[in-house]
């Protein structure tokens, strides 16, 4: 008797709290509606991976077929190839892309003329704000047979390189163009971390006779170590997703075999071949689940290394 009384009073308290905050809920309403429809709607749509999609019945009405669709997915050799290719390309990014902004920030920090530092930084950050369509349009021209790059090589008396449409060069091209576009932007985070290092450490080291290089290695690098670790872990969290825009716009039929990452595969089976939406949803679900675990692991790890995780 008294238990149900306590319960009902708790419900009453809940409702008075809700009523008191009704304007806050009204503020939330529009955003929550958007999330419900356009973020959670597609999540519900993932159930299609276990259904046979029929356009007339829609997502809700299509009949359940269990895990049959996944059997088809795993039977397609192009699927597993694309997964491995994605992981391989993005693991390469850890080696050929990840350190560049760190090095760039260390070098920029050593520039002692304030004005040239600012100009350099502006130049480095600008390309980040251009879309991959623009950047790839520029790169396809610049690195093409008539482009500046090959003109320069010819002027120096070398043999022109056929870079565009050459499948051997495709993956290095990804790393080079990504560095060209975004290394300067990524360096900003490390610059901020460097600015937070206690200046007295440098002065003490200077008095002790440490050289610039020694100060860089023994003070600056340890000073940004936490930031570097956290950024590295977050990059690992993006192993499955990084680079669709880039790959999509830089690839062409000649490089199709080396450019089919998982996202490219999903795009192809959904929008280019005879589309079987259950099939592509199953691939989507596979990707989302793997990606989820990578991100959660990244979040946990970055907290362990002193970062504040994905959400702050």
């Amino acid at each position: 008797m008294s238990q149900s009384k306590a319960k009902s009073s708790r419900i009453a308290l809940f409702w008075t709290q809700v009523k008191k905050n009704r304007q806050v809920y009204f503020l939330l309403l529009f955003g929550i509606l958007w999330y419900a429809i356009f973020a959670y709607g597609p999540m519900y749509g993932l159930t299609l991976a276990f259904k046979q999609y029929r356009a007339v019945d829609g997502i809700f009405g299509s009949p359940w077929v269990g895990t049959q669709v996944f059997e088809y997915v795993f039977r397609d050799p192009a699927f597993m190839d694309s997964v491995i290719r994605t992981l391989w390309i993005n693991a390469g990014r850890m080696i050929f892309q990840f350190p560049i902004p760190v090095i760039l920030s260390l070098l920029l920090n050593e520039v002692r003329l304030g004005k040239s530092k600012k100009v350099l930084q502006s130049i480095f950050t600008f390309p980040h704000f251009l879309s991959w369509i623009i950047v790839s349009s520029i790169m396809l021209n610049v690195l093409g047979s008539q482009g500046v790059f090959n003109s320069f090589i010819k002027l120096m008396g070398g043999e022109p390189l056929s870079i565009i449409g050459n499948s051997n060069f495709f993956v290095p091209l990804l790393y080079i163009t990504e560095n060209w576009k975004s290394a300067g932007w990524s360096a900003i985070i490390y610059m901020a971390a460097i600015a937070g290092i206690d200046q007295e450490q440098y002065e003490a080291a200077e008095i002790d006779g440490a050289s610039r290089l020694q100060r860089m290695i023994h003070i600056t690098l340890p000073g940004i170590q936490v930031t570097v670790t956290v950024m590295f872990i977050l990059a690992v969290g993006n192993l499955m997703t990084a680079g669709f825009d880039q790959v999509f716009n830089l690839s062409n039929p000649a490089t199709a075999t080396v450019a089919e990452t998982l996202d490219m595969y999903i795009y192809r089976v959904t929008f280019q071949s005879a589309s079987d939406f259950s099939f592509s949803t199953a691939v989507s679900l596979f990707k989302s689940v793997i990606n989820f675990f990578l991100l959660v692991a990244a979040d946990r790890l970055s907290k362990r290394f002193g970062g504040s995780g994905l959400f702050g």
């Binding site: 905050n21 993932l46 999903i266 989507s284 989302s288």
Partner: peptide, 28 residues
């Protein structure tokens, strides 16, 4: 604090970790 604040917050943050992807969005 207001009732269900945590629920809404985590429901929103969850979308950063997990999403339906392009195919269900297209069908939607």
């Amino acid at each position: 604090h207001f009732p269900l604040k945590k629920f809404f917050l985590y429901a929103i943050l969850f979308t950063m970790l997990f999403n339906g992807g392009i195919v269900p969005l297209y069908l939607l």
